Simulated assay, not measured.
Amino acid sequence: MTRATPIPETVTLHVPFRVVKRGGRKEMQLPDGAAPTCRTDNTLVKALARAFRWKRLLESGDFATIAELAECEGIAPSYMTRVLRLTLLAPDIVEAILDGKQGPAVTLARMMKPFPANWTEQLHQLS
Rank of each mutant, 00 (worst) to 15 (best):
T107D: 09
L69F: 07
T120S: 05
V15G: 02
R25L: 06
Y79I: 10
K46T: 15
A47N: 13
K21T: 01
T43Q: 15
E9V: 01
S78T: 10
G103H: 03
E71T: 12
K101L: 13
T43R: 15
D92Y: 02
M111W: 00
A49E: 15
P116D: 04
W119C: 09
P77K: 07
K55W: 09
L89H: 08
T81N: 14
R85M: 11
M112C: 11
L89M: 12
W119S: 11
T12F: 03
D99I: 02
T40Y: 07
Q125F: 14
P114W: 07
E59N: 13
T120A: 07
R22C: 01
K55V: 03
A70E: 01
N42R: 15
R25A: 05
A96Y: 05
P116M: 04
L98T: 09
V83Q: 05
M80F: 04
G61I: 13
G100M: 04
P36I: 08
P91D: 14
T87R: 09
L86D: 00
M1I: 02
L58N: 10
V20G: 00
M1C: 03
L123Y: 08
L88P: 02
P116A: 13
L44V: 14
E71P: 00
K55C: 10
P6N: 15
A67F: 05
G74S: 10
F115H: 09
M28V: 01
W119D: 05
M80P: 01
L58H: 09
R3I: 11
K55F: 04
A51F: 11
L44N: 09
M111Q: 04
D99R: 14
L108H: 06
F63W: 09
A117E: 15
G103I: 03
G33I: 02
G33H: 02
D41V: 10
T2Y: 06
K21L: 03
I75D: 03
G61Y: 12
L88A: 15
H124A: 13
N42A: 14
E27M: 00
T5H: 07
A117Q: 15
D62W: 06
L126D: 00
P91W: 08
E59F: 02
A96F: 07
L89N: 07
F17R: 04
K101W: 06
M111K: 03
C38L: 15
F52A: 00
K55L: 11
T81S: 13
E27S: 00
R53M: 15
P116R: 03
M28W: 02
T2H: 10
R110C: 05
D32S: 09
H14C: 12
I93H: 02
K26G: 01
G100H: 06
D32Y: 01
K55D: 15
F52H: 12
G61T: 14
V94W: 05
R3M: 12
D41P: 10
N118T: 11
A67M: 04
C38M: 14
T5P: 05
A96H: 07
V15Y: 11
A4I: 12
K101M: 10
T65H: 09
A67W: 02
S127E: 08
V83G: 04
L84V: 12
Q125P: 06
D62E: 13
L108G: 08
T40Q: 13
N42F: 07
V20L: 06
A4Y: 12
C72A: 13
A117Y: 11
A51C: 11
D92N: 08
G103R: 01
P8I: 07
E59C: 08
T81C: 10
P77S: 12
